[in-house]
Design a binder for these strands. Structure first.
Lengths: 193, 193
DNA sequence: CCGAGTTTTCAGATATTTCTGAAAATACGG
DNA sequence: CCGTATTTTCAGAAATATCTGAAAACTCGG
């Protein structure tokens, strides 16, 4: 691998992480190299830096593109394609989460929905469905939260994340403000509850 | 595989998902079988249901235990060990996230910190460090948010999740309430900002 | 439409992971 | 301790995944 030592450590670590993620080591390394590169790289730049075959790079880039993780740029007068990662790291994370959701969560939800439609033929099936229902409902809660938060601009998102669980205090405050004199919670049009 | 059709579909799907997750197909299937089982199962129950070797089950259970995903129960007068998953699915998800964090995020953060300490020896190292810094800061923001939210009881968590991005309206409301007459934001002791 | 530069494909080689059966280790009642 | 029930380990077999070089397929200026 012909990259400076600092970069090498980063690239190697990403390779390892990649393999825990269902993308393979090489793909992880290719991504890492692109992520820290000062300029867009062509396939042969990656061959040089990682010391792997041209065809392997080609397949790796395909894989990363299928994850929507790369941008492409062509330089006038140069036939080669140059690749780079988006500058905005928040955008990168959004893409990652979106893609994983698309590949893992959505198919799971649809399997669960299908299975929950069937009529159980035995007590064990009935119980299994009960468990599937719990899983389904939780996944649905999480994804609808995500869909919702996904819409926020980065600015807002950071604000929200920085707040952490202190948000609960804000909620409490809201509840106190809207509490009816009798102590019962108000129906609050803003939260839909 | 000798489980009712409904269960089989669930187990097979989980096997597939498992392989996208860095745990292998069999381990995913073992977990699925335990998750929907009506009662704790012993290793041989799993052998019967999945039609895989006893030793494979043993290794799979070890793997799941290393993820903290199983509970064990022994029946008096029976030497066998019985396994089951926690009832509370929220607790399961917390465990999953915790473990993934421990295995993926924490090591990444520590590599990043180490690399950020070094002095760059070239312009390309300097630029690489800048990117690593961005990644580091984002991961840190996300994990500290998670650490924070993690403390909430399930009840509160659900409340928060159900609110989704409507939380932003609550925030706006809070900001308006605390706004100083001049229109500048107040220093708000409740949020620490 | 030619041909040089470039990318993609893919069959087979290589490497890695997963799975098994047999043997070893462990647990425990008597 | 012994013997039986059970679990774990592990070397090698089987299955998968990854990687490569060579060939095919593009692409585009001329």
């Amino acid at each position: 691998m012909s990259v400076p030592p600092l970069c090498e450590a980063f690239v190697l670590h990403f390779g390892e992480m990649g393999s825990r993620w269902g993308i393979n080591r090489t793909v992880g390394q290719i991504y890492a190299v692109l992520f820290i590169a000062e300029r867009p790289l062509c396939a042969d730049d990656i061959v040089d830096r990682l010391g792997i075959s041209r065809s392997n790079v080609s397949m790796g880039l395909k894989e990363l593109q299928s994850w929507n993780l790369l941008r492409q740029r062509s330089i006038p007068g140069d036939r080669r394609e140059f690749f780079h990662t988006p500058d905005d790291i928040y955008a990168i994370v959004r893409t990652l989460v979106d893609e994983r959701k698309k590949r893992e969560i959505d198919p799971t939800l649809s399997v669960l929905r299908e299975l929950l439609m069937r009529s159980p033929e035995s007590e064990s099936e009935r119980h299994a469905q009960e468990r599937m229902r719990e899983m389904h409902d939780l996944i649905e809660l999480l994804t609808s939260w995500y869909a919702d938060v996904h819409k926020l601009e980065t600015e807002r998102l950071i604000q929200l994340l920085s707040l952490g669980s202190r948000i609960v205090k804000v909620l409490d405050m809201k509840d106190r403000l809207f509490a009816l004199p009798g102590g019962k919670r108000s129906a609050n049009p803003e939260t839909g509850n």
